[in-house]
């Protein structure tokens, strides 16, 4: 039986969602999503054992135990990051220039960059901390930590070499031509004209690499750090084991975020500023 047969057409035809005005529909759907969110929050609040969470993740007693030492770990994280970034970036400039040259220098740079970008950083750290010292019976300066740091310098240089090369290639070729026509030799042109401009272009991606490296220092745990050498993650993990509690990891996480979130925001700002200049 259809509506028309029963004589009900017009007054009570089937209700369709599209009959509601668009503004009303939008308001309804937003209201529904707030409602669902509220229900989820209430469920979480009532069904969670807050005591347990506080005891395991936000334990004030455990936290106060960690307080002076965790800043040393934060200091180590920052120190390792800075050292690896500075050395890695200097090395990256050399490899970027080598990759843009011709002949064996270029082949070597290509192989180096592909190798260390292709391997997991963890494996490279392990190789330099243990495999290479054992295989060749050498002691790297700084022991296993030194080996791990060398590995991070190498990994950073491989990544940053590509970033820097892209920056150098983004400098208009007229800059090189102007410098060369003034009689500047190749290297002088690179160092005084091209590199300063190329590096400026890649400040945002390099800051990004810095944040990545900061997090990658956590991988140094595999090098087996002594108490004084520990960085944030290792410190948090050790604290978790000794206290049988997750508060140390939460604290470490908060300290990471205090450093990385402003840095990431800075990258966004720098990118905008450079985009405006163009």
């Amino acid at each position: 039986m259809t509506d028309s047969e029963t004589g009900l057409s017009g007054s009570s035809r089937t209700f369709r969602l599209s009959d509601i005005r668009p503004t009303t529909r939008r308001r309804l759907s937003r209201g529904a999503s707030y409602g669902v969110a509220l229900i989820v929050v209430l469920l979480v609040v009532f069904l969670t054992d807050w005591d347990k969470i506080q005891r395991n993740f936000f334990n004030a007693d455990v936290a106060s135990d960690l307080v002076p030492a965790i800043f040393r770990a934060l200091g180590n994280t920052l120190l390792y990051t800075l050292v690896c970034f500075v050395l890695g970036t200097l090395l990256a400039v050399v490899f970027a220039l080598m990759k843009m040259a011709h002949g064996p220098a270029r082949w070597f740079a290509v192989a180096y960059i592909e190798l260390f970008r292709g391997l997991p950083a963890l494996l490279t750290i392990f190789a330099f901390a243990f495999m290479i010292p054992i295989a060749f019976r050498v002691r790297l300066p700084g022991g296993t930590l030194g080996g791990g740091l060398i590995a991070l310098v190498i990994v950073t240089s491989a990544y940053n070499a590509e970033v820097i090369r892209s920056g150098i290639e983004a400098v208009p070729k007229g800059q090189r031509e102007a410098a060369r026509s003034l009689g500047m030799p190749h290297l002088t042109t690179m160092l005084h004209v091209i590199l300063p401009q190329g590096l400026r272009i890649v400040i945002p991606p390099l800051t990004n690499e810095f944040v990545m490296l900061l997090k990658d220092t956590a991988l140094l745990f595999i090098a087996g750090l002594t108490a004084a050498e520990r960085e944030l993650t290792t410190f948090g993990r050790d604290g978790m084991t000794t206290h049988g509690n997750s508060t140390p990891l939460i604290l470490a996480a908060v300290l990471y975020l205090i450093v990385t979130v402003p840095l990431t925001a800075l990258v966004g700002k720098l990118e905008k500023k450079l985009a405006v200049k163009k």
Binding site: P172, G174, E177, A178, S181, L182, G183, Q197, R200
Partner: peptide, 20 residues
């Protein structure tokens, strides 16, 4: 060649000044 180039000034269509 660099020494010879110092004696030949060159001016380009797109100026090519060093921006920084």
């Amino acid at each position: 060649l660099d020494r010879v180039r110092t004696r030949i000034g060159m001016v380009f269509q797109s100026f090519n000044l060093f921006p920084p």
